[in-house]
Design a protein around this nucleic acid. Structure first.
Lengths: 212, 212
DNA sequence: TAGATTGTTAATCGATTAACAATC
DNA sequence: TAGATTGTTAATCGATTAACAATC
């Protein structure tokens, strides 16, 4: 890494990947920064700048070969190095992620889930076994788990974050709605209420505009 | 609205609200921009700038009265004007939102959910009735629904977005993982894979650092 | 009054956009 | 070669930070 790549670029990278996947599916062979920009609502300039943070995926006078671009972005995101994850809290949201979310597409293997509910412990959701939360600490240590997905109640959030960080987890995917101190682990927040409040703000202010 | 307030500010506003709620719960009476900044990892300057986009909630020489600040932020977000929402797709993720997510705290009333599964249609989840997706169009029109929460499969995403926009929905909260054309409705994307990929990127690059 | 802390203007910094030479 | 389009440097724009006068 030459110099620090901004978080904005990183977040756009996953969007590029998604879009390029669609191009692969549509059997497009090449695309120019201009066309990609038009599709995604970005300037061609920005796309070229972004992609160049990770080295030239394109070819002057030609554009970007879709297959090459895809593997370039995947390489930049590092998804070929698979990370091991566990879900903590197999309630509604946890089970939704376990059964629906494609962890593999993000370069992540979901190893197991943990809960305290005796009705759940010992069962499986899809291929994912559910263990008792008491065994979480041991499991993380023995399996060198990289990521913890926290889908449990607000009250248990902070103490669980502390626990998993202590055991060596390096990333916390936080769905609890609480701002966590990762104790050294990186925290990625999915604050659904922030998202809905933002949408609400814009919907409301659009309405006002029309009224005036 | 004097001049356009940047999206960054809007998104931080929900974070402020969350934090201030915690202060209310802790029965704090006042707080300075300096202290709030330290807690949230922002500069005092930024907090004062942000809050001033919506008028002076603070008092010179004193700081911000917590209760006043809270109602100020809520006023800025406009949550007292309640929006009506429906969930489309009552599978795993949909039901997780229906039963766990606090729509009311975001100034939103969840009216109903829609699905095609005959096992679900006609039942209730919590207080939320589940109707057949065929009746969605009518329901939106008759009840002047403001927001649609899309928690259905990728394949049905785009056509459903088109339908709800046509019926007058003004905001789409998009969990489908597909980039949607809102057809005039505002789209707020919750792209979980983007979020996980970003976390993965940082975890991986941190690991590399340590190895070098 | 003196101290604190806001509201607000000015300075800095970083991100986006534009331009263009390199080159396929 | 001529046309297209990248990679990359320079210019612009906007967001963040710093500074300070206003004032509680």
């Amino acid at each position: 890494m030459k110099y620090r790549i901004s978080e904005n670029v990183i977040r756009r990278l996953s969007r590029y990947l998604r879009r390029v996947d669609a191009l692969v599916a549509a059997e497009r062979e090449k695309i120019s920064s201009g066309e990609l920009g038009k599709i995604m609502g970005l300037t061609a300039s920005q796309i070229r700048q972004d992609l160049n943070c990770f080295g030239g995926f394109g070819q002057q006078g030609y554009g970007y070969n879709v297959a090459q671009l895809r593997s370039g972005i995947q390489g930049a995101l590092g998804t070929e190095k698979v990370l091991k994850a566990v879900v903590v809290g197999a309630g509604n949201l946890g089970s939704a992620l376990i059964t629906n979310f494609h962890f593999a597409e993000c370069g992540v293997t979901l190893m197991a889930a943990f809960d305290v509910d005796p009705k759940l412990v010992g069962t499986k959701m899809g291929d994912t076994p559910i263990y008792h939360a008491d065994t979480l600490e041991n499991y993380i240590r023995e399996n060198a788990v990289d990521l913890a997905v926290l889908t449990l109640s607000r009250t248990a959030a902070e103490s669980t974050a502390e626990l998993v960080a202590k055991c060596g987890v390096r990333g916390i995917w936080n769905f609890t709605g609480v701002d966590l101190d990762g104790r050294g682990a990186l925290v990625e927040n999915v604050h659904l209420s922030d998202s809905l409040l933002t949408l609400g703000y814009y919907v409301r202010s659009q309405t006002e505009e029309k009224e005036n």
